[in-house]
Write a protein that binds this DNA or RNA. Sequence first.
DNA 1: GCCGTTTTCGGCCCGACTGTTTTCAGTCG
Length: 592
Amino acid sequence: MKIVTNVELAQLLRKVAAAYQILDENRFKIIAYERVADSIEHLTSEAKDLWDDGKLNEIPGIGEGISHYLDELFRSGTVKHFDDLFKRVPEAVFPLLLVPGLGPKKAYRLVKEFGFRGSKTVISDLEKAAKAGKIAPIEGFGEKSEEGILSSIALYKKGAVKENRMELPIADSIAKAVITYLNNLREVERIDVLGSLRRMVSTIGDIDLAVATKYSDRVVAHFVKYPHEKIIDEGPQGATLLLHNGRQVDLRVQDPATYGAMLQYFTGSKNHNIALRELALSRGLSLNEYGIKKVSKSKVKSQKSIKCDTEEAFYNTIGLPWIPPELREDKGEIEAALHGRLPKPIEPGDIKGDLHIHTNYDLETSHDLGADPLAVHLDRAEKLRYEYIGISDHNPSVTKHTVSQIVGIMKRRKEYYDRQAHGKPVHVFVLCEVDIQPDGTLALPTEAFAYVDAAVVSIHSSFTLAKPVTTKRVIAALTAHPKVRIFGHPTGRLLTKREGVELDWKEVFAVCKKRDIALEINALPQRLDLPDTIVYDARKEGIRFCINTDSHAVSHMDMMRYGVSVARRGWCEKRDVVNTMVYNEFKHWLIR
DNA sequence: GCCGTTTTCGGCCCGACTGTTTTCAGTCG
């Protein structure tokens, strides 16, 4: 297999780690490979591109050894050392690692015991063995292991296991339902959503909740009575349920006196927590979910731990200010906190307008119209306390009209919106979302630009062109007309469905910077486009953003907060986002 | 195998739960 993408690369490195684990290699070597796999997964750019630029060593966790192997990989397509390693482990082991509860050691024992061959059939072979009662007698296994393997395989087959992530609103609504249920219990003092949902990651794996209570047993007992498919875990500190919808909910309970440590621990991210614990250790402190202990030379000095009832207290005890959850990804936030350089992330209330709204006005586009008229959107905008909105209908179809027909449509539309908007408390900008055609030209004739205040340009077709071609295409579009002010949903990704286009972001950033074009942060939960990692990179280059909902119905206008959370994860402050400007300033920025 | 405001050697985040065990290894988050 030719390794190209970060996902494949991370898989390869995890496979190396698993093989080393089976061969009882030094466990820190194993951790080293897992760490690199992890940081490659979290990379904003392709590792291959970094290698091209000779910057492989900038990836955290990559040193001389792994760098040398990856060099061989990118050069020749294979790594002899890895191939030799894999020869020492039966191929059938690796598919078993996808079954929950099976790690390298157990998977290896099973493969060796039964002599499984062929990675394609191994899971069904194992299922047969379990059903025949052949696993329980193996040393180290037992009745329960056999049952566990069977139910894990069933889950695996249902697809409920790996990479089955959900969009934010779905996670929100599941969390809300469970919280409502738990709040019926008097013993619950406080409930919080933690984990990736609190950090507002673009897709959510499972729901993490924490409860502050003095009666943990009662809360856990109540929780496991919530309608479920299966209890995955249960203990005095919490429990994990698999719901009927295939989603997992993880609950932790904790005494209010130490709740701050729990909030911090269970919010993650894992990498943030690891980095935080390493920092704490260097200062003679050991962190866990119950509090902070003083240590010396990896020995606990006193058994008494410092209790923190709030997260602020927890961070302060380590000597740091509180870090907003969206920043906790080990992307330099701890360093920034140490030096008092944490950003003050943008808040939903900073948004003064939404510039990407589709109404039901029919301008004979080949794309979707919105469902609601301008007036309805204006009412909503007023309730949201916006000063202005922008109507960004799709351009009229270019194949079904002549240039003069399009100019006519755009002129009539402009006049219509101007009449409708007259005298309203919320200002209306008449924009247009213009297709970036495969050759980089815009799907709106130059003459028609006279009837728009500005244009949002977006890709809606040919998503899979080669990177240099797409880059050229986008740059051509961004520079095609001075009224191009916003680059709409720049990657074109649809979460869990479609990968975004490949772009040379450095080049795109440079053009945006020069022409002061804003990159859209599309707040639609299926998009969340730009991805937060690219927002982070772009912001460092001084690029500004416009957070829009891309509403096709008035209810979509309430999704703005998801876009704001992407900006927060990208370390954006108010000043990094153009639609936080007051009307006059914004108008001055927008209209060229 | 990585890495350095104590270090180029000697460390490497922390704990819960499970199952099969009489003290622990494996897996997970």
